[in-house]
Amino acid sequence: MNYPVAEQQFAVPAAPAPTFIGQGTAVEQSRAVAEVQAAVIVARQFPRNEAQAIAKMRTGFSQHSLAVRSFFRFRRGSSNVSGETIQFAKELARCWTNVHYGVHELRRDDAAGESEMQAWAWDLETNERASTTFIVPHTRWTKTDGGTRLEDPRDVYENNSNNGARRLREMIFSVLPDWFREQAKEIATNTVERGQGDKPIAQRIADCIAHFEGLGVTVEQLEEHRSGRESGKWTNLDLGQLSIISESIRRGEVTVDEEFPQKRVTAGEIFQQHADQTSPPDTPPAPAEGARQWPAARQPGAGATS
C-alpha cells in the first residue's frame, strides 16, 4: 500500500522485534501463562467459603504473636503514625483464599539511582485487580544526615523491599472487603490488649519494664511516654501499645532514641548550674542592730584560758 508523501514523512518507525528468544525465556513465558490459567480455573472450581474464611481469620488473630505483629506505631514530628502491617494484610489474604499478590522490580537504573517497581493484588474469583507503579530512589533518609546514596546492592534490595511492602499492603486491602478487614483489626486489637497467657497484670508490667530496660529505656521514660502515669497504674491498653512499639523497634521502623527521646537541657539550666558551682560560700549573716560586738580575741568559746 502506497502512502502519500506527507504521511510517509511523519511515519513512526516500528521498534525492532527481538530476533532471538532463548529457550529458558520461552519456557518461563509459557510456564507463567499456564500458571495464571490454572489458578483462575482452580479458583472457579473451588470458590471460597466465607464462613470458613471468617473462622480462620478469628483463629489466626486470636494468637498473641500474630496480633502484636499486625500493627506498627512510630513518631513523626509531634504526632504518632499507626496502622496495620504487611503481615496483617498477608494473613487476611491467606484466610480469604484465591488472592494472588506480589511486587516486581521492572527496571533498575544505577546511574540515576532509582528503581521502577510494581505492586499488585488480584482476586481470582471476582477478577478484581489492583496495581500501582512507583519509583524508589536509592536513598536512605535520616533526620541528622539527610539523604544518603545507597551503593551496596544489599542496601538497595532492602530499601526496595521496604517501599514495595507498603504499596503491596494497600493493594491487598483494595481487593479485600472492608468489613473483613475491620473484623480482623478488632480481634487483633483485643488480643494485644488482653496480653499473653493468664499472667496477672502486675507480672506483665514487670516483664515489660525488664524488656525495655534491655533496650536502654528507663522506667521514667516509659512512665513519661504513657502520659506521666505511674507504671503501677498501667492498664492492658498501655501494655498493648508498648508491645506494638517494641515490635516496631525490632522491625527497624523506628529507633529507641526516636520513640523515647532524651530530655533536652536548656541554656538557662546550664547557666544556672554553672552559677551554682562557681558562687562563693555563704557568709555568716550580719549581727542584728544593737547587739553586742565581741572582739575577735574575746569571742565566747574562742579558746581563751583563765
Results as ranks from 00 to 15, higher is better:
D110Y: 11
S306Y: 10
Q293T: 10
W122K: 02
F61P: 05
T235M: 06
H104Q: 14
D123V: 04
V36P: 00
L239C: 10
K90G: 09
T305K: 11
R149S: 14
F10M: 10
F61H: 04
A286L: 15
F61E: 03
A286D: 13
N98D: 15
R58G: 07
D152T: 00
E105F: 01
H225C: 05
Q63K: 14
N159G: 01
M171V: 03
Q203C: 00
P13G: 07
R154N: 10
R167E: 15
E213L: 12
T278P: 01
A119C: 14
G147R: 04
E259V: 08
D110R: 07
S65F: 12
A32D: 14
I201A: 00
R75M: 07
A6K: 02
Q293C: 02
E182C: 05
A32I: 13
G113P: 00
A93K: 01
V156N: 02
V217M: 07
L106M: 09
G301S: 08
A112W: 04
G195P: 07
Q277G: 00
A93L: 05
S131L: 13
P300M: 03
S227L: 11
D282G: 02
R154T: 14
G301P: 06
E230T: 09
R44Y: 08
P16F: 01
V27Y: 10
A286I: 10
Y101V: 07
E224K: 13
H274G: 03
P295E: 00
P47V: 02
S248F: 07
I245M: 09
V36W: 09
A43Y: 03
K233D: 15
H138I: 06
V192E: 11
G195C: 02
Q299F: 08
E253S: 12
A288I: 05
P18M: 00
N2F: 06
T133N: 08
R250A: 15
R250M: 03
T148V: 08
I21T: 14
P281R: 13
G216Y: 10
R298C: 10
N163G: 01
H274Y: 09
A304Q: 11
E84T: 14
E125H: 01
E105S: 03
W120A: 07
V219Q: 12
E223A: 05
A202T: 02
Q299Y: 11
E50N: 11
E28R: 15
P13S: 12
L92M: 13
P16R: 08
E230C: 02
A111W: 00
L124R: 08
L242Q: 00
G301E: 09
S174W: 00
L237G: 08
Q118C: 12
G197T: 08
W120N: 04
V81K: 08
N236P: 12
G164I: 12
R140W: 12
T144Y: 05
K56A: 14
I187F: 04
W120M: 04
A38D: 13
T266W: 05
A202V: 02
A34W: 03
F88T: 13
I21Y: 11
E105H: 01
A26P: 02
L215V: 00
F180K: 10
N160S: 05
G232V: 13
R204W: 04
F271C: 01
G164N: 09
P280C: 14
L106I: 14
P4K: 01
I86L: 15
S306R: 11
A267T: 03
K143E: 09
L215D: 04
N49F: 10
G24T: 03
R166W: 12
V136H: 07
A111V: 15
